[in-house]
Computed example of a mutant assay.
Amino acid sequence: MQAGMHDLNGQPFYVRTWGDPALPRLLLLHGFPEYGGAWEDFAPLLADRFHVIAPDQRGYGRSWAPADVGEYTASKLVSDMVALIGDDGPVTVLGHDWGAGVAYALAFMHPELVSRLIIANGVHPAPFQREMAKGGAQSEASQYINYLRAEGSEDKLAANDFEKLLALFSAKMDMSWLQGDVLARYKEAWGRPGRLRGMINWYRASPLVVADPGKPVTDLRALPVERLQVRCPHLLIWGAGDIALLPAATEGLEDFAADLTRVEIADADHWLFHQKPQEIADVVRDWLDRT
């Protein structure tokens, strides 16, 4: 693994890479509350086939973390990745959690840069918004978003050595991987000045609406289906034990991705890359061999 700072759109970003730079590129996009180091078990498993690239995204780790919520709109998050890809596209893109949101937006806005799209326990904005607006199970599971959006939530999460952040991170899921040196590195990333605010600003800048449980929101503006299409081969990998993102939030994804393959990992949850890295790498290889 190699790592260092890159200038993207005039700002510093920390990027980790694995494998021969002459190989095809695989861009890995982490979610909340992780950072580029989250891929350290998974990335080497594909480094014989790809030059694997894993940035700390805006607001995370050692990368640029502006305080202004307006700096975290989807178009700005995507612009970072457009700059990172540069003239080396198209690339295969894999996104998890919030990284999936950037991966989808990159595929929508710059389809010429994405040859294949892999999403793992992440959601397309249209089905996700549909489910969050119903006031049902996904609305209940997503109430933490409203908590995070509240001003000052970063201070509450950081208190007592990140006690509330760890509770949010691990609720009812297998966190046996987050201990020892791994946990220490996460705390180091969270503790960098301004990083927790930057991380949470992703939620604050998002236009997605979370209904209160039992109170559907029915006056949402319809999302433009044509502008939200995935036009390349698309693989969705799903850890079945996820309690934050529910399977219903992926229903109808075929309407937005004509070339979609679904693979369920039965004995994993939202943190599947830490729990089953080799199994997921094998799924990715098998799919690549068939597309």
Rank of each mutant, 00 (worst) to 15 (best):
V210R: 00
L113I: 02
W39Y: 13
K187E: 11
F169Y: 13
A100F: 03
G19T: 11
R290T: 15
D20Y: 05
P55T: 00
V283Y: 09
M1E: 11
E163H: 15
A222R: 13
E163G: 11
L166K: 09
L196K: 06
L228I: 05
A222G: 06
D181P: 14
G4A: 05
I119W: 01
A120L: 08
P24M: 04
A105Y: 05
V283N: 11
D20E: 10
F108K: 00
V182Y: 14
K76Q: 15
L26W: 04
E40D: 13
A107N: 04
D255W: 05
V52L: 09
I118Y: 06
G191C: 07
A107K: 03
G61A: 05
A126W: 03
P213K: 09
Y72A: 05
A65W: 02
G194T: 05
V284T: 07
A43P: 01
A158M: 13
K276Q: 13
M175A: 15
N160F: 13
Q138G: 06
E254I: 13
T17A: 03
K156G: 14
G101S: 13
C232D: 02
N146S: 14
T73S: 14
E131A: 07
R130S: 14
V217G: 08
G70K: 08
W64A: 03
F42E: 00
V230H: 07
D174V: 04
L28M: 13
F42D: 02
Y147M: 14
L26S: 06
G152W: 00
E131F: 01
A248Y: 04
A83I: 05
L26N: 06
G136A: 15
I280P: 07
